[in-house]
């Protein structure tokens, strides 16, 4: 079949793919390039090569503090989202509670409904019920949008596992809870882990909810970059961004190793 494609068309296809990839990856390459500049301004191609802006970022409190806040937040979001999301995924997979189809659509809805509306609503509700926004309001908001990712990856794994394992465990004397812990959860593990990496990535990169729910004393890394961008971009932003890209690449590779990126992306 491939032989039947005219050569001209094939050449055009290769050029087309390269152009699109350049377009899609260009900004990331540019950010990485700028971060290595030796000059004082944001320029691409960079003026000379140096690691000075990485040194600057790693020694600047604004960046290290916000990075630590972001990492701590992402870790806690990952913890909450994996625990909560796994439970929902297992229950939905078993299809025994009524309205499973509807519930599946509902629990995944934070993925497609406008985050800004949710952010505004949560800010309003938090202010009237709890009071001042804090680290915890961010934790709550990020967890809500991270849970659907865990549900999706865990469901993807469950869909390919032997449907009779749980019943087999029951006939071997394991009650419902021991079946869950000794049989079902070990099956889900790759999905939970992949979902956890997604959750970490979502929380670490998230900007919209953070803009609404932050408080003056907490600053996440994306918000730090956002504020800098609005005022005075200098190459330290590029260095911080490049570090974030590196982390993302690491997470994507981890997800792919655990689960196969194609199974969760499509």
């Amino acid at each position: 079949m491939v032989e039947a494609v005219p050569t001209g068309v094939r050449a055009a296809a290769v050029i087309f793919m390269l152009l699109v990839l350049a377009f899609v990856l260009g900004p990331l390459v540019v950010v990485a390039g700028v971060s290595f500049t030796a000059g004082d301004y944001v320029t691409f191609p960079p003026e000379g090569l140096s690691l000075r802006w990485y040194r600057a970022v790693l020694s600047a409190d604004v960046y290290t503090h916000s990075a630590i806040t972001s990492l701590r937040l992402a870790a806690l979001v990952t913890l909450a989202a994996t625990v909560i999301g796994t439970g929902v995924a297992v229950a939905l997979h078993r299809r025994r509670i009524p309205g499973t189809g509807f519930l599946s659509a509902l629990v995944l809805s934070p993925l497609v409904l406008p985050t800004i509306v949710f952010a505004l609503g949560l800010l309003m509700l938090w202010s009237s019920v709890v009071g001042r926004t804090s680290f915890y309001s961010l934790w709550l908001g990020h967890t809500v949008i991270a849970v659907p990712y865990v549900i999706r990856t865990t469901l993807a794994v469950l869909a390919t596992s032997d449907p009779f394992l749980e019943e087999a465990a029951r006939t071997m004397g394991a009650g419902p809870w021991r079946t869950l812990f000794h049989v079902t959860l070990p099956q889900c593990l790759p999905g939970i882990a992949a979902g956890g990496f997604f959750a970490f990535n979502i929380s670490f990169d998230e900007a919209i909810l953070s803009l609404f729910l932050r408080s003056p004393d907490i600053m996440t890394l994306p918000i730090q970059i956002y504020t800098q961008l609005e005022f005075s971009p200098d190459p330290s932003i590029a260095a911080a961004s490049a570090l974030m890209i590196a982390l993302t690449i690491f997470l994507i590779v981890a997800i792919d190793r655990l689960l196969g990126i194609q199974r969760v992306a499509a």
């Binding site: 260009g26 900004p27 990331l28 390459v29 540019v30 950010v31 670490f204 990169d205 998230e206 900007a207 994306p222 970059i225 956002y226 961008l229 971009p233 932003i237 590029a238 961004s241 974030m244 890209i245 993302t248």
Partner: peptide, 9 residues
């Protein structure tokens, strides 16, 4: 990748 990073690019 974070939306702020992409947009910066």
């Amino acid at each position: 990748t974070s939306v702020v990073v992409r947009t910066f690019g």
